[in-house]
Structure formats: C-alpha cells, structure tokens
C-alpha cells in the first residue's frame, strides 16, 4: 500500500506531517520565546531573524511557529468536536427515523440557513472570547455539515441486510451505530474530515483577524496578520507570511483528502 502513493498525495502527506510536527514541537524548534521582544520593529530578514521581526520587534519565525501551534490545535479540536457530535447525531437520526429524525434535521436546516461566520459573530458578542468557547462555537456550528453527510450515508447503510440481521438478532441501537454503521461509513467521513479541518483553519484565522478569536499575546496565524497589517501600506510584507502557511497547509490537506476519497471510492468497485 505504501509504495503506490501518488506523488501529489505524498507531497501533501509530507507537508501535513511537517506542520503537525512543528505544532507539537514548537517550544523546542522556535529560535526565541513566543512573546520575547528581540529586535527592532519590522526588521528585514537576516541571519538572526530568518523572516524578519514583527510590529513590536518579536521574531516573526517564532511567532509563526507558535501561531501554527495555536491555529492547528484549535482547528483540530474543533474538527474532532464537530465530527463526534455531527456523526453520532446523524447516525442516531438515521437509525431512529420518525419524528426524532425530522426534528433534528429541520433544526440543522435552520442552523444552516444562517451563514456560520455571522452566527459565530452573534454568539461571540455575548460570550467571553476564550479558546474553549471558540472551539465549542466553531465545532458545534460546523457539526451541522457533518450531521448531514453522516445521516445521508447512514440512511443508505441502515437498510443493508447485515444491519437488518443485527436488528433481528436483537442488538441495541448503540451496537448498530458503532459496530455496524460506523465502520462502513468511516471512509466518506474521513475524506470529509480533511475539508472540515481546512475550513476550521480558515474560520479560526478569520475570527482572530477580526479580533474575535485568539487573544494577544498568544500568537495565531490570523492574529499575526492583524498585528502586522499596518506594515502593508509601507511595503512591509510581514503580514503575508500567514498566507503562505495557511495556503500550503490547506493545499496539502486537500491533496491527502482527495487521495483518501479516490482510494475509498475505488474500493467500492470504482463507482465514481
């Protein structure tokens, strides 16, 4: 299996792994302390500061590494939350059917009729903006999309013979959901996970950029843009580094997700 990874997916995997390793090992690989002022304002790249310094003289590379840590951590946590809530509720709706399904699905329709960013802003206007709150708000808002996918997949699986057999031998709902439906619904969900993760990275960066996400002095990619954006008009590109980081991360995860999706669809006899 490992030898026929297509080149695009291999590149994707490599960069995705690199970013996650950087996030985990941030305190060891970052050249300076996270909020340490070590130079002048917006110094150009040099041997001491590989990509220069930021608006108050902190090392930009260090900020980027710690920022990646925060951004990736929040995005991962929110994705996990969104997947557990979304898929469990989606499977439950598919298995239970009837009014439970109706009520949950219509409620999800309602939530999805408001753009997530707007709804998040409305909620954040009354909630304290802390990392756990961000994760919960983002995760729950996004779980509506996972719910739809999980329910659609589970409705198909629920009428399969083996599920029927399990029901006839008297297995409970928990068994049906976790032992019969979950293993068979895993591959489309995993492929979707990559896309949701990217969306979370973009979402948290956007919120931080608007000043409603991660609060300073903690670093995160959206926040770095916000801190350094005033340099743009003087031709200082410090605020553009997060663009490079986010774009490479998002494209790599996309490549991996595409590969997973192709592999899993070909497993089912090549049906598109």
């Amino acid at each position: 299996m490992t030898k026929n990874i297509p080149i695009a997916a291999a590149i994707g995997l490599f960069f995705t792994a690199l970013y996650f390793l950087m996030a985990i090992l941030a305190p060891w690989i970052a050249p300076y302390g996270m909020a340490e002022v070590v130079g002048g304002v917006w110094e150009p790249p040099s041997a001491e500061h590989l990509i220069g310094t930021d608006n108050i003289g902190r090392d930009l590379l260090t900020r980027m590494i710690y920022g990646g840590r925060t951004t990736i951590f929040i995005a991962t946590a929110a994705t996990v939350l969104s997947f557990t809530t979304g898929s469990v509720l989606g499977f439950l709706a598919a298995v239970m059917g009837g009014w439970v399904d109706q009520v949950m699905s219509r409620f999800v329709d309602l939530l999805m009729s408001i753009p997530s960013l707007i709804f998040a802003l409305v909620v954040l206007s009354v909630m304290p903006v802390t990392v756990p709150v961000l994760i919960v708000v983002m995760g729950l808002l996004d779980s509506t999309r996972v719910y739809r996918l999980a329910r659609a997949v589970a409705v198909d699986i629920n009428v399969m013979d083996y599920v029927e057999a399990a029901k006839l031998r008297g297995e409970g709902r928990i068994w049906i959901i976790f032992r019969e439906i979950l293993p068979n619904a895993l591959s489309p969900l995993v492929a979707e996970m990559g896309l949701r993760f990217i969306f979370m990275v973009l979402f948290v960066s956007t919120l931080s950029f608007l000043g409603l996400g991660v609060q300073p002095p903690a670093a995160d990619w959206g926040g770095i843009v916000k801190e350094n954006k005033d340099g743009i008009v003087y031709g200082i590109g410090a605020a553009l580094w997060p663009a490079v980081a986010i774009a490479t991360l998002a494209i790599s995860v996309n490549l991996v997700a595409d590969w997973v999706l192709n592999r899993t669809t070909s497993l089912k006899g090549g049906r598109g």
Binding site: L240, A243, I246, A250
Partner: peptide, 12 residues
Amino acid sequence: SIPEFLIGYVLM
C-alpha cells in the same frame, strides 16, 4: 485554500 482577508492583503 486562502482565507478572503489574506487574498485581500496579498492584492493590496
């Protein structure tokens, strides 16, 4: 793959 605000700054 790039959030709107970053496209904005890149263009700016």
